[in-house]
Design a protein around this nucleic acid. Sequence first.
DNA 1: CAGCGGATATTCT
DNA 2: GAATATCCGCTGA
Length: 213
Amino acid sequence: MIATPDRTPLPRKFFDRPVLEVAPDLLGRTLVRSTPDGPIALRLTEVEAYDGPNDPGSHAYRGRTARNEVMFGAPGHVYVYFTYGMWFCMNLVCGPEGRASAVLLRAGEITEGAELARTRRLSARSDKELAKGPARLATALGVDRSLNGTDACAAGDTPLRILTGTPAPSDQVSNGPRTGVSGDGAVHPWRYWVANDATVSPYRAHVPRRRRS
DNA sequence: CAGCGGATATTCT
DNA sequence: GAATATCCGCTGA
């Protein structure tokens, strides 16, 4: 069989599957962010699955709101949320439509456009840290709320798409509890990462923080 | 290196 | 009012 062309975007049917199938299958794939200043490419090394109605850790667990409405739409679209008053995080909506499941993109290795990513991540002490964490990943790629609802499967020079590429071999994929998730949602081992990869973010258990007076 | 406080939108109570 | 799918800069070992 002829090798798949490297720049082919993943089709919508890739995302129209249960989120627990899609999440590990995304590891090793390349995300391309096209900007007026040039492209940035990222090899995904860490993701987390959120399964709408069955998942207390999901933004969609308590139903549809203005913030999470993209999760209830078609697979293959980008859900961007703003958190802790400062940061953006990006997800890819999975199937079936209406289930409100999505994969949070937590970390990756910048493989193209590192110079551009560095200008957005001035605090990074090495290139390994450019996208080591979900908010860092979104910052490095210049992703904000204006891209919420973007179709990652559309043809042409779109702002965001995932290339077919080659997934990480399953024997190199590890999984465990999700980062920063509390309560009943913490029991699910739905964080997936490429084993022994230096760009994977450190695990942090959920810690409630006292509010300032 | 570990620990902790600050920033403060969005949602739920 | 309180918690959260986070990160950064400072403090002290």
